[in-house]
């Protein structure tokens, strides 16, 4: 294995971006495992990819538009029934104001 490709500090940052709180044990383990994967993935650095366009999707269709007519939709009450907390026909969450973005 070559140089370290991802550090523990970077893993801490990535976990925060992903809204995951990892234990010290998870952070240690994931840092090593991610590093090993990234090291394997680095094999593609040997390829000449300069002239190639990226593929986002295997089959490129022109973006289709459906007719602008109202169709069947899910029943609101049935959908809300599945949520952990609901109030006045809406999803209820803890305070969002004053939070860091």
């Amino acid at each position: 294995m070559g140089q370290q490709r991802i550090t523990r500090a970077e893993c801490v940052h990535v976990a925060a971006l992903a809204r995951l709180e990892l234990t010290d044990e998870e952070l240690d383990r994931f840092t090593g495992q991610l590093d090993e994967l990234l090291d394997h993935v680095a094999e593609v650095e040997a390829l000449d990819l300069e002239a190639l366009a990226p593929t986002m999707h295997p089959l490129l269709f022109p973006n289709p538009l459906r007719p602008d007519t109202p169709g069947e939709v899910l029943n609101r009450d049935e959908v809300l029934d599945q949520a952990p907390y609901v109030e006045d026909g809406q999803f209820r969450v803890p305070p969002v104001l004053g939070e860091a973005p």
């Binding site: 809204r19 995951l20 994967l37 305070p95």
Partner: peptide, 27 residues
Amino acid sequence: STSDMNTATRSVGFGDEVKRRIMIGTY
């Protein structure tokens, strides 16, 4: 807060491999 709730839910709700893949993908 909502973001604390999001984080707590995901940290308890997802298993090891899912967390690992989310970490790889986010990175």
